[in-house]
Design a protein around this nucleic acid. Sequence first.
DNA 1: CGGGACCTTGATTATCTTCAATGCTAGTGG
DNA 2: CCACTAGCATTGAAGATAATCAAGGTCCCG
Lengths: 239, 239
Amino acid sequence: MAVQTYSARALQTGALEAKLSGLAPLGPPDLAAIRACCEDVRSHGAGAEILRVGEEGPPRLILEGWAGWTATLPDGRRQIVQILLPGDVVGLPPSPGGAVAALTTLKTADAAPLAAAVEGSAPEHRALRAAWNAVQQAGHRQLLDQVVRLGRRSAYERTAHLLLELLGRQHRAGLTDQNAMAWPLTQEMLADVLGLSIVHVNRTLQQLRRDGMIVLRTGRVTIPDVERLARVAEWDAAR
Amino acid sequence: MAVQTYSARALQTGALEAKLSGLAPLGPPDLAAIRACCEDVRSHGAGAEILRVGEEGPPRLILEGWAGWTATLPDGRRQIVQILLPGDVVGLPPSPGGAVAALTTLKTADAAPLAAAVEGSAPEHRALRAAWNAVQQAGHRQLLDQVVRLGRRSAYERTAHLLLELLGRQHRAGLTDQNAMAWPLTQEMLADVLGLSIVHVNRTLQQLRRDGMIVLRTGRVTIPDVERLARVAEWDAAR
DNA sequence: CGGGACCTTGATTATCTTCAATGCTAGTGG
DNA sequence: CCACTAGCATTGAAGATAATCAAGGTCCCG
């Protein structure tokens, strides 16, 4: 849970840059604003609470590792509302409840410079603002998808659908290799995302493996046939 | 599904005004912006699609009746992502997918004047903007609650929790009478909100009635003991 | 070697869905 | 006025899906 501070300037913002570049052609001022975030980089141990959503505090950009926007009921039941990947920014208004917690060890940066560029009206950040709007829209869409997954899909479909969402998101952040991606989630975390019990997640994953839908190795998952998985997940291609 | 156009100026914006007034003291210019929306009032039959979320088109303010932000899977399963009440505005960016459909007969107004006042930076609309931010935040919070309901709550808790959310929202819009409120949802609609089957919703409602949690009469529901319902719903008082 | 975190398994139970009727009520047209 | 209809609510029975309970098993790390 220790929090260390670096001032390294290594290119840790690659995921965000890849994601935004796919939406609008970023200029040098945009890249400068993004990279300025690395002035304040912190490491968080797995399980650490990064911030409480809705309370004051600067937004943070995830550089490495996975986090989760989580809500916990008084009796301990936990729901991960949204998984947060490298390149995602957390803590921007409008800010509801819950908290952002590190699911793995995590590296985050101060997103204030980015937020300032986006919220201003400087002409040199026009492209950045356009890209940012699209990112916000995608975030909303993910929330919509999460509601539909939880409300109207079976465990098998839910899992398949989430895998496809994460593959797409990591792909757009330049974090995939063919159809393979990092998979740091324990089955307990996955259960908290999907609204299922651990045991049932275990059996569902086994079923997906037996069906050849996924290949799961320590810390990594491969989806041999995305088309096929998309069919069983009723994945909406028009996105 | 007919769409009629009025130019009446009767005070149909009461729900929105009540909701906003509870958040910041609105001034005459704010009220003028709100009431200007009534230049273009339309009626929609139950079941009509008001707009597709994410496509271009002016936002609309709900004056009377209930609507739902809905998503439909290719195989026909439907999920109501969020219930929309009088005083709510739909179709503002960031706009994900899905559509807004009338759940009852509905009266809506063009929300463009309101949107303009909120998005500008005119000093006379400072209070309006503050109130609007709070409204946006509340909307996000509702989405968070919906995810947790669907992911981690039993049918009984889900139903109770939704009832409390709707009671609170209608109360803030000045639409309740003691602990009673309009209840125009069929059990099928409720099932689509809660991610349950119709039959199970029927049985859950019966259970709530037998337990004295709710009193349901045609088109209206009363919650005799809000405290008690809040306990079984694990309703978070700190909101 | 012990411990802890994570994964897996079988058995049992609870929750929820599906299927198939039936009842109820309000509106419609003869 | 009354059959007729359509939409909605209700019921029982059966079955699927998922949760819970209780052990083990594996792997890594100190």
